[in-house]
Simulated assay, not measured.
Amino acid sequence: MSEHLAIEVTYGLPNKQSLISLTVPPSTTVEQAIVLSGVLDIYTEINLSENKVGVWNRTCRLSDEIKDGDRIEIYRPLIADPKEIRKLRAQKAKEEGRANKITGAKQKRESSAKSSNNE
C-alpha cells in the first residue's frame, strides 16, 4: 500500500470551476481532504454543513474514508426543485395543447372540424 493517496477535489459555479489534485495520507476522510485541498479558501460560500458532497457522482458522508483515485465533489444547493419545474412544464404544455402530441393534435383537429360543421 502506498504512503499517500492521489485524489481530486472539485467544485464549480456557472462562471468558475476548480479541480484540485492533491495527495493525502491513508484513512483521510472526505471532510479532511476538502479542508486539505484549500477549496474552502477559494470558495468561501461553501458550507459543509449545508452543501452535499459525493465521490464520483455518488453522494457520501463527510466522515467516509477516501480511496486512491477518488474525485470528491462538492455540490451546490439546487436553485429550484426539479419535480416542481417538471410539473410546471407539464402544466404549460397541457394549456398549450401539446401535452400529448398524438392525441393533443387529434383533439384539436376534431374540435376545429366540429366548429366548421356548426357554421
Rank of each mutant, 00 (worst) to 15 (best):
T44Y: 11
V55C: 07
R109Q: 08
G38A: 04
I20F: 05
T44Q: 15
D41A: 12
L36C: 03
P25G: 03
P77G: 08
S27A: 13
I74G: 05
N117C: 03
D81H: 03
L88R: 15
R71P: 00
G104W: 00
L22S: 07
P14I: 00
S112Y: 14
E3A: 12
I102K: 15
K92T: 14
A113M: 14
R98A: 08
L62R: 10
K87C: 01
Y11F: 12
T44V: 11
E96W: 12
G38E: 09
I34R: 00
Y75S: 02
H4V: 05
G12W: 00
N118C: 06
N57G: 06
E3W: 06
E3S: 12
A80W: 11
H4D: 06
I72M: 09
Y43Q: 02
K92G: 10
Y75E: 03
Q91L: 11
K52R: 13
K108N: 11
I42Q: 09
E31K: 13
R109W: 06
G104E: 00
M1G: 15
A80F: 14
Y11P: 04
I7C: 10
D70L: 02
V9D: 07
S116M: 13
Q17V: 04
R86I: 09
E73F: 05
I79P: 07
Q17G: 09
L78V: 00
P77N: 09
D64S: 10
Q91D: 13
K101S: 10
N51V: 01
Q32I: 13
I85G: 07
E31C: 06
V35P: 06
A105F: 12
E65Q: 12
T29P: 02
A33I: 05
I79S: 14
